[in-house]
Amino acid sequence: MEFSIKNKFIKKSKMKKSWKDRIFDITIYGIAIVMILMIIYPLWFIIIASFSNPADVSNGKVWFWPKEWKLDGYMELIKQDIIWRGYLNTIIYTIVGTIIALFVNIPAGYALSRKELFGRKWISTFYIIPMFVSGGLMPTYLVIKNFGLLDTFWVLVLPFAVSAFNIIIARTFFKSSIPETLWEAAQIDGCGTFRYFLTMVLPLSKAILAVIGLWTAVGIWNSWFDAMIYISNENLQPLQLVLRRILISNESLLGTASGELASELRRLSEMMKYAAIVISTLPIMCLYPFLQKYFNQGVMVGSIKE
């Protein structure tokens, strides 16, 4: 009886918060809500602006909902045949590039996490140096040209597959999350290194696989500068570069037009800009919620001190 009374007293004391605690909670929740709105509202504004009249947007008449719904920007983009080709190219680049990046970076990170690896510190230093010092654009271009990768599909997925940052993150994850006793138990059962990595380590590494995969996929999806430098074939250009070309061509036409034609082109150009942002970011935004759980777990790996 006395024990139950103490438990009730403890529960009541925990339930009762002082006015300082309540003010602190209200402040924290208020700051969190403001930060969420600061992130969500620009995204929402881009979406509603893509369906709105550019004149209403520029005059400040569009805040939370389109004054009148218009699909002109999306219709003009959909009419462009190169949009669909660019979409397909970007999807293929993203899938293949992400698979290759995981295939390269995850085993490298695991190898560097093993204490028995000969020259582990020197190899780690070899990976860290390129994070701060790069060869530059011209040497990279010459290397890619000498390997015969210019104007090919593989130029966007092979040369930049290795990421020193991702390797270091994967190494930290394996060192902090995979217990050494698991390897010792696997050795007792006659499990070799490759079998241990494939059957035991990888199934326990979903978090880091999701994080590195998401980082790589977003980077490839949003990349346009590498394609502009290394690809001139229109059939191989990704979506981001195709959208850039369309918008630049619209600006050129706008400079040569006048009168009502110029105002109409200006209106379509503004709507197409917003529509292009929505079209290019929508797949990644749809993919992120499914990987958010693993992303939140793995993104903290880099904060662990070795």
Rank of each mutant, 00 (worst) to 15 (best):
M1P: 11
K6A: 14
K8T: 10
K12Q: 09
M15V: 09
K16P: 00
D21I: 10
R22L: 14
F24R: 11
F24E: 11
A32M: 15
A32T: 12
V34A: 14
I39L: 14
Y41Q: 06
L43P: 02
F45I: 10
F45R: 00
A49E: 03
F51C: 12
S52K: 02
N53D: 14
D56A: 10
P66T: 07
K70Y: 08
L71N: 09
G73E: 03
M75Q: 11
R85N: 14
Y87P: 01
Y87S: 09
N89M: 06
N89P: 00
T90G: 01
I91K: 08
I95F: 12
V96R: 03
G97E: 03
I99T: 06
I100Y: 03
F103T: 15
F103A: 15
N105W: 03
I106R: 01
P107V: 13
G109W: 05
G109T: 07
L112Y: 09
L112Q: 09
S113H: 09
S113L: 09
R114Y: 02
K115D: 15
K115C: 04
E116M: 07
R120W: 08
T125R: 11
F126N: 08
Y127F: 15
F132E: 04
V133W: 14
S134R: 13
L137T: 12
M138E: 05
P139L: 04
Y141K: 06
Y141W: 10
Y141M: 04
V143K: 04
I144H: 02
N146L: 07
N146S: 15
F147C: 13
G148L: 05
D151N: 15
T152V: 07
W154P: 01
L156F: 02
L156H: 01
V157N: 04
F160E: 10
F160H: 08
F160K: 08
A161H: 04
A164R: 00
F165G: 05
I169M: 13
I169Y: 07
R171I: 01
F174Q: 03
I178W: 04
L182D: 05
E184M: 11
A186P: 04
A186M: 09
I188V: 15
D189T: 01
G190I: 08
T193M: 12
T193L: 13
R195D: 14
T199K: 13
P203D: 06
K206V: 05
A207K: 00
I208H: 05
N222W: 01
S223H: 05
W224G: 06
W224R: 04
F225Y: 11
M228D: 08
S232N: 15
N235E: 14
L241A: 02
L241M: 02
I248W: 07
S249K: 10
S249P: 00
S249A: 13
S252M: 14
L253N: 15
L254T: 06
G259S: 10
S263A: 12
E264D: 12
L268H: 09
L268E: 08
S269K: 06
M271F: 02
Y274E: 02
I279P: 00
I279S: 01
I279N: 04
I284Y: 02
C286N: 01
Q292G: 01
Q292L: 03
Y294P: 00
N296P: 01
G298C: 06
G298P: 03
V299C: 05
V299Y: 00
V301Q: 06
